[in-house]
């Protein structure tokens, strides 16, 4: 892949990637996966980065209006999901089904 894209590394303050001492901060492994997924789909030409950052800003604004909050990467994931569905990569049904499957399996693994 090419070098990191400044469109991604330097976004508007409102949606800028969380950093600590300049470095990206991922609070949990899934956040890094979600980050990577969004970047890879952009590099694959599924959407221009502008569409993603706009979507993230819209998601943030919508939540604010509802008076609810979500973490940065929860909003990121929501944006990613909506774009992937809008571009016809996945359907909401298969995504829901697969999530439920994983949840069931995780439940199985942790309860004895």
């Amino acid at each position: 892949m090419a070098a990191p894209d400044p469109h991604i590394t330097v976004m508007d303050e409102q949606v800028a990637l969380p950093r600590k001492n300049g470095e990206l901060v991922f609070e949990a492994p899934w956040e890094a996966r979600a980050f990577g997924l969004a970047v890879v789909l952009n590099e694959a030409g599924v959407y221009p980065w502008h569409d993603f950052s706009q979507g993230l800003a819209a998601e943030t604004a919508a939540l604010e209006q509802q008076g609810t909050s979500a973490s940065y990467y929860e909003r990121w994931l929501e944006t990613l999901e909506k774009l992937a569905i809008a571009r016809g990569l996945v359907s909401i049904e298969e995504l829901d089904a697969r999530t439920a499957e994983y949840a069931f399996r995780a439940h199985d693994e942790h309860e004895d």
Binding site: P29, W30, L37, A106
Partner: peptide, 10 residues
């Protein structure tokens, strides 16, 4: 978390 499962599913 739900988000982790959702990411894995996607």
């Amino acid at each position: 978390s739900y988000a982790a499962l959702r990411t894995k599913a996607l």
